[in-house]
């Protein structure tokens, strides 16, 4: 379970997040929507300790991770999967090695087991015959899917995805969204996803939140959020739907 209490963060004299509080229960999918530049990535990076809040706490499974030492944070992250917005693949490793990396680091799988598992997750994200390609030879959407494969390869207990469908075509966005829901429900991962993609978010989320000017404008089930009367939320949802 993830519990964020009164989190605030200022970057370069700019107040990015203001007094954010929310909870995600075990096995739940929360999707955070919001316009570009609102602080979705900044918020997500806090949840894995890549950024430290100025104020507030982040309690994961009963422990406040903002109080962790560097070593404790590294150890904790073995249970996390994180998809970076731009993929953040190692560009000196091919696709196979990128996806195999968490397995080599955190399991004692032998070579054939690693090969099998990597193949499995690459199949899941619908990538074939790319194992030996380098990340620079992939399209943006392919990089994203490799990033997703790397994030789920260890069957994370907590999965954080930064815009998994941006830059993908509508059909892939649909399929990847379904895949994420299917995978996290199977492994029971607590999941936080950021997105602009309202249509898919509403399809797969257990709950949805909308960020606006550094605050959580609204948070609730799809019905609750759809019926929200706030002017910004109404406009954001209306303009996002076809």
């Amino acid at each position: 379970m993830i519990k964020v209490n009164h989190l605030s963060k200022t970057l370069d004299d700019q107040k990015v997040l203001t007094d954010i509080s929310f909870q995600v229960s075990e096995g739940e999918i929360l999707i955070i929507l919001g316009p570009s530049g609102v602080g979705k990535t900044v918020l997500l990076k806090h949840l894995i300790g890549l950024l430290q809040p100025d104020q507030g706490s982040i309690v994961i499974n009963g422990k406040d991770i903002t109080k962790f030492s560097q070593q404790q944070q590294l150890a904790m992250r073995k249970d996390f999967g994180y998809l970076f917005q731009e993929g953040a693949l190692y560009d000196f490793m091919n696709v196979f090695e990128n996806v195999a990396f968490p397995l080599r680091e955190h399991t004692n799988f032998n070579a054939s087991k690693i090969r099998q598992r990597v193949q499995e997750v690459l199949d899941m994200v619908d990538l074939h015959q790319v194992e030996s390609k380098m990340p620079l030879e992939l399209s943006g959407g392919m990089k994203k899917r490799v990033g997703l494969a790397r994030a789920i390869v260890l069957s994370a207990k907590i999965l954080l995805c930064d815009e998994p469908t941006s830059g993908l075509d509508p059909i892939r966005s649909h399929d990847i969204s379904d895949l994420i829901r299917q995978v996290v429900k199977k492994i029971g991962a607590t999941t936080v996803i950021t997105s602009h993609d309202v249509i898919n978010a509403f399809r797969i989320a257990d709950r949805v939140a909308i960020l606006h000017e550094g605050r959580m404008e609204v948070m609730g089930t799809v019905q609750e959020v759809s019926s929200c009367q706030d002017a910004f939320v109404k406009e954001f949802l209306q303009l996002s739907k076809v």
Partner: peptide, 17 residues
């Protein structure tokens, strides 16, 4: 270059120093 492409952060996110 790795730093600007978030590969150093990604290493941390993967639980590796």
């Amino acid at each position: 270059t790795m730093n600007t492409h978030e590969q150093i952060q990604a290493t941390r996110a993967l639980g590796v120093d």
